[in-house]
């Protein structure tokens, strides 16, 4: 492999070599979320301040007296990350204006899991986005409360078995459709909304860089595969992310000032969702007709999205 051999030659053009989230953190083996956070830091660079919600990424990276963070980082609580980030941004703005800190441009980034974004952190996020702070909010969506033990969230997909929406004799797991956070953020009419997946690192980095370059609020929804919670082998995380994208379960797209664009990584023809469901223990109990129903919905949602992109 030439590219790997000549990494030092090619990589700097594509990826920042600085590791701003250092190794030695305590994430599970095969965790795609921590990989996504690492990629995000590479794309953001060192002039970044991160506000993190309580959750996996917080506990694995900040066990006192150690830290994995080489960028300024603050954790306060679970539901308030966007509000904390908005306060950091407001504080910096005032201090810069008054000449109390140097005038370098610093991007403030809030990060939370699906629960910290879609459920308990929803109000603070909506408020921060509406107020127009110059910040990025990244949701690392692993589709359940993984840190507390795989409980369902509003980001859990229909039919997935979790510890609080388990599959049983009279239940097929999650009974509701996944909350469409990206569309909710688009409805806030913020300058930039994008979906990303660490299985597509270059698309991921490009979108984070774009969010960084935009003045005002941006929202990034990151599909973060969790082998532990999805009950699949730890080496499958990257292929699972690819399957989620290729089946249209998690389409990659961006919305810039209301204009939709489907990412070039999206295939022309979607693969059936069965291929994505099969390797995951959380979907194992689903019957054929249940998978068909979910397939119908995934196809419909994807068509709706393509319809919006067509008018670009």
């Amino acid at each position: 492999m030439n590219i790997v051999e000549n990494f030092d030659l090619f990589a700097p053009r594509l990826i920042n070599k600085q590791e701003l989230l250092s190794s030695g953190h305590r994430a599970c083996s095969g965790c795609a979320e921590v990989l996504a956070v690492r990629l995000m830091c590479k794309a953001l660079g060192e002039n970044t301040i991160i506000a993190s919600a309580t959750g996996c990424m917080e506990i694995v990276s900040s066990m006192f007296p150690t830290t994995a963070w080489r960028v300024p980082w603050i954790h306060v609580a679970f539901e308030n990350t966007a509000a904390v980030a908005s306060g950091v941004e407001a504080g910096l703005k005032a201090l810069r204006k008054k000449g109390k800190i140097d005038d370098r441009y610093i991007k403030v980034v809030g990060m939370a899991g699906d629960g910290g974004t879609m459920d308990i952190g929803f109000q603070a996020l909506s408020g921060a986005m509406e107020r127009g702070h110059d910040m990025i909010f990244v949701c690392f969506d692993n589709e359940a409360y993984m840190n507390t033990g795989i409980q369902r969230s509003s980001g859990t997909p229909m039919g997935a078995s979790t510890t609080t929406a388990p599959a049983g004799k009279v239940s097929s797991g999650q009974k509701t459709w996944k909350k469409n956070m990206a569309e909710i953020m688009v409805a806030h009419e913020i300058p930039y909304v994008a979906t990303v997946c660490p299985s597509y690192p270059l698309d991921f980095i490009r979108k984070i860089e774009k969010a960084k370059s935009i003045q005002g609020p941006s929202y990034i929804h990151c599909f973060s595969m969790c082998p532990t919670g999805w009950r699949s082998p730890s080496h499958t995380a990257i292929s699972m992310g690819r399957l989620a994208v290729e089946t249209g379960v998690f389409p990659l797209f961006e919305v810039e000032h209301g204009h939709y664009r489907i990412s070039p990584d999206m295939p022309r023809k979607l693969r059936p969702i069965r291929q994505y469901f099969k390797p995951q223990g959380r979907f194992r109990h689903l019957k054929d007709d249940e998978i068909d129903q979910i397939q119908e919905r995934v196809t419909l949602e994807y068509q709706k999205l393509m319809g919006k992109a067509k008018y670009l």
């Binding site: 308030n80 509000a83 908005s86 306060g87 504080g91 109000q123």
Partner: peptide
């Protein structure tokens, strides 16, 4: 802010930044 919870969160963030 959109709540007192966010008011306290935001001042924590700002104070952390040195404001």
């Amino acid at each position: 802010v959109e709540s007192e919870h966010s008011a306290m969160s935001a001042v924590i963030g700002a104070s952390g930044a040195g404001a």
